[in-house]
């Protein structure tokens, strides 16, 4: 009984004003709220993707190309002839995203994008390690992990650039592609582009924070909350990628 009253008293104190009910600073709360709202903008794009995809029939099953097999030079034309690529239906992602750098001519669906996923997850880990080091005010460790995170971000962006280049050289553009409906390539460019733009701004933010860490700004301030805030943003970018990965490559 006594326990419940203290709990209740505590609850009253929590929302009673004079302090944050979540015990987070206003900056962190702002970042959370911003991410909530940004999640809605990504959702609107993914919903568009879902809508347009639902308006097209699914492709027939691929019985021709096996993973790890060699692909012909005129792969795309062959697929068109086999009616696996056609403007009438949505293409199978395995037949479109099947390249890997330096392994030209092999059918390697999903390998490259899995690599990208790992890069991003790993950079998320280094980010959270930087945050953890920040709690201990360990300046050198924070800087080290921030640098790793920045490299991770740049690596991801480079991967994306390579994939876009590959996609474009095969003839994809915003108003047409050899794989299927126009909207297929357009949506791919816009959604991954919007995500990539977020990664890019994340890298820029991380770089600014990294410079500030080296400069000792946060050491003088006494806490590394700024690292936590960009950390939240960075994980959010990772989070979005999980769904981009699921919807564009797996399904």
């Amino acid at each position: 009984m006594a326990n419940t009253t203290t709990l209740e008293a505590e609850k009253k104190l929590t929302w009673g004003g004079g302090k944050s009910p979540f015990t987070v600073s206003y900056g962190k709360l702002m970042m959370w709220i911003f991410l909530l709202s940004d999640a809605f903008s990504f959702s609107s794009l993914l919903v568009t993707y879902g809508f347009i995809r639902f308006t097209f029939p699914a492709s027939g099953a691929n019985e021709i190309v096996k993973p790890l097999s060699h692909t012909a030079e005129n792969f795309v034309e062959a697929m068109r002839e086999a009616h696996l690529f056609s403007p009438e239906h949505w293409p199978l992602p395995e037949l479109v995203f099947n390249h890997f750098p330096f392994l030209h001519g092999l059918h390697l669906p999903l390998f490259f994008v899995s690599l990208m996923t790992f890069v991003l997850i790993f950079s998320s880990v280094t980010m959270v390690l930087a945050v953890e080091a920040g709690h201990r005010n360990a300046k050198k460790e924070v800087a080290f992990y921030m640098l790793l995170t920045i490299f991770g971000g740049i690596a991801f962006l480079s991967c994306q650039a390579w994939e876009w280049t590959q996609f474009i050289t095969e003839g994809a553009s915003l108003h047409g592609n050899p794989f299927g409906p126009t909207a297929f390539a357009a949506l791919f460019f816009i959604v991954t582009g919007f995500h990539g733009f977020h990664v890019l701004s994340g890298v820029v933010l991380n770089f600014i924070i990294y410079v500030n860490v080296l400069d000792g700004t946060y050491e003088r301030r006494g806490h590394y909350e700024m690292v936590e805030k960009v950390g939240l943003y960075w994980h959010f970018v990772d989070l979005v990628w999980v769904f981009v990965f699921t919807f564009f490559y797996l399904i």
């Binding site: 009673g16 004003g17 944050s20 009910p21 979540f22 987070v24 600073s25």
Partner: peptide, 8 residues
């Protein structure tokens, strides 16, 4: 949410 005065 965060900046109400004491008692609010």
């Amino acid at each position: 949410l965060n900046m109400r005065t004491k008692g609010m």
